[in-house]
Deep mutational scan, measured.
Amino acid sequence: MLEGKVKWFNSEKGFGFIEVEGQDDVFVHFSAIQGEGFKTLEEGQAVSAEIVEGNRGPQAANVTKEA
């Protein structure tokens, strides 16, 4: 698991990027966000996630919002 913060997230398109210190930004799709209801993230929000290899490079999986 790694910790980072949301760089930006487009709720209409359902994707965005997470900033991780010392690494390239990581793509995040709404389907990777854990929880019930409408899955979205806010800019600057702290999150933790796993990194997996997607079709277009590294992407976030099992994204959870930090308190």
Rank of each mutant, 00 (worst) to 15 (best):
E43P: 15
S11C: 14
A67M: 12
K13Q: 08
Q23K: 12
E42H: 14
L2K: 11
I18G: 00
S31G: 06
V47I: 09
Q45S: 07
V28P: 01
K7M: 04
V20N: 03
G14S: 01
V52Y: 10
G14M: 01
I18W: 03
Q59M: 12
M1P: 11
F9L: 00
T40G: 06
A67E: 12
L41C: 06
G16V: 02
I51Y: 09
V6K: 01
N10T: 05
E50K: 11
S11G: 09
F38S: 05
I18K: 00
E43T: 14
S31F: 04
S31A: 06
F17Q: 02
E53M: 15
K39N: 05
E36M: 11
E53L: 14
I51E: 02
E3K: 15
I33W: 03
D24R: 14
E43M: 14
G37F: 06
P58N: 08
E36N: 11
E21L: 12
V26A: 04
G44A: 04
Q45G: 06
E42M: 13
E21F: 12
E21T: 11
E42L: 13
N55F: 15
K13V: 07
K13Y: 09
T64P: 03
F27H: 02
T40M: 08
Q59P: 03
E42T: 13
G4A: 05
P58E: 05
K7E: 06
F38M: 06
D25V: 08
E50M: 14
A46E: 09
V28T: 03
T40V: 08
K39H: 06
N10E: 04
T40Q: 07
A61E: 08
E36G: 10
V52I: 11
T64E: 08
L2W: 11
N10I: 06
E12Y: 12
D25N: 08
K13N: 06
A61M: 11
Q59E: 11
V20D: 01
E3D: 11
E21S: 11
H29Y: 05
Q45T: 09
Q45D: 12
N10S: 11
F27M: 01
Q45Y: 05
K39S: 04
L41I: 04
A61S: 11
G44Q: 03
F38C: 10
G57C: 07
G35D: 08
F27Y: 07
G14P: 00
N62A: 09
G54S: 10
S48Y: 14
D24E: 11
A32V: 08
F15I: 08
I18P: 00
A49D: 02
I33L: 07
V52C: 11
V47H: 04
V52H: 08
E21W: 11
V47R: 00
F17S: 01
G4V: 04
G54P: 02
K5E: 05
V63M: 00
P58G: 04
E43Q: 15
H29F: 10
M1Q: 11
E36D: 12
S31W: 08
V47S: 02
E42V: 14
F27W: 05
F15N: 03
N62V: 10
G22T: 03
I18H: 00
F30H: 08
G35C: 10
V52N: 06
P58I: 10
E3S: 15
S48R: 15
K13T: 07
K7R: 08
M1F: 13
A49W: 13
E21N: 11
K39P: 05
N62H: 10
S48F: 14
I33Y: 03
F9A: 01
E66N: 14
G16W: 04
F15A: 01
G4H: 02
A67H: 13
G35T: 09
G22P: 03
G14W: 04
A60P: 01
G4S: 02
A61N: 09
E3L: 14
E19F: 10
L41H: 03
Q59F: 13
E53W: 15
K5N: 08
V52R: 09
Q34L: 14
G22C: 09
G4M: 06
R56P: 07
H29L: 04
G16Y: 04
E36K: 11
M1E: 08
G16R: 00
K7T: 07
E19G: 09
D25L: 10
W8I: 00
S31P: 02
K39C: 10
G14I: 01
G44Y: 04
E66Q: 15
F15G: 00
G57W: 06
V47T: 01
N10D: 11
E66A: 14
T64V: 15
K13C: 10
E3T: 15
T64R: 15
A61T: 10
G37I: 05
F15V: 06
N62S: 10
F9S: 01
V20A: 06
P58Q: 09
E53G: 09
I18C: 04
G16T: 02
Q45R: 06
G35S: 09
Q34G: 08
V20M: 10
G37P: 05
P58T: 09
I51K: 07
G44K: 05
I18D: 00
Q45E: 11
E66Y: 15
F17C: 09
G44H: 06
Q59N: 04
S31D: 03
K65Q: 09
E53A: 13
Q23S: 11
E21V: 12
E19R: 12
D25Y: 07
D24N: 13
Q34V: 14
E53N: 13
E53Q: 15
A32W: 05
S48P: 02
N62P: 01
Q59I: 10
G16Q: 00
V28M: 04
V6I: 09
T40H: 08
S31N: 07
G35P: 02
A46S: 12
I33T: 03
A49M: 15
Q45N: 07
G14R: 00
A32M: 07
E3I: 15
E36Q: 12
I18N: 00
D25E: 05
A60C: 07
E36R: 09
D24H: 12
S31K: 07
G37Y: 05
A32E: 07
A46T: 12
F30K: 06
Q34E: 10
A61I: 14
V63R: 00
V28I: 08
K13F: 08
F38Q: 06
E36Y: 10
E53I: 15
V20R: 08
L2H: 11
H29T: 02
E12H: 13
G37R: 01
I33R: 00
G4L: 05
E21M: 11
N55Q: 14
A60W: 02
V52Q: 08
G54R: 06
V47Y: 01
F27I: 02
E66K: 15
G54E: 05
G54T: 14
A46L: 14
E36F: 11
A32G: 08
N62Q: 09
T64F: 13
G22L: 04
G22M: 06
V47D: 00
E42G: 09
V28N: 01
V20K: 05
F27E: 01
E42C: 15
K65H: 08
E53S: 12
V63L: 07
G4Y: 06
A60M: 04
H29E: 03
F9K: 00
D24V: 12
E66V: 15
Q59G: 01
M1A: 10
E43I: 15
G4N: 01
A67K: 12
V6S: 00
V28W: 02
G4I: 06
Q23M: 14
V26M: 06
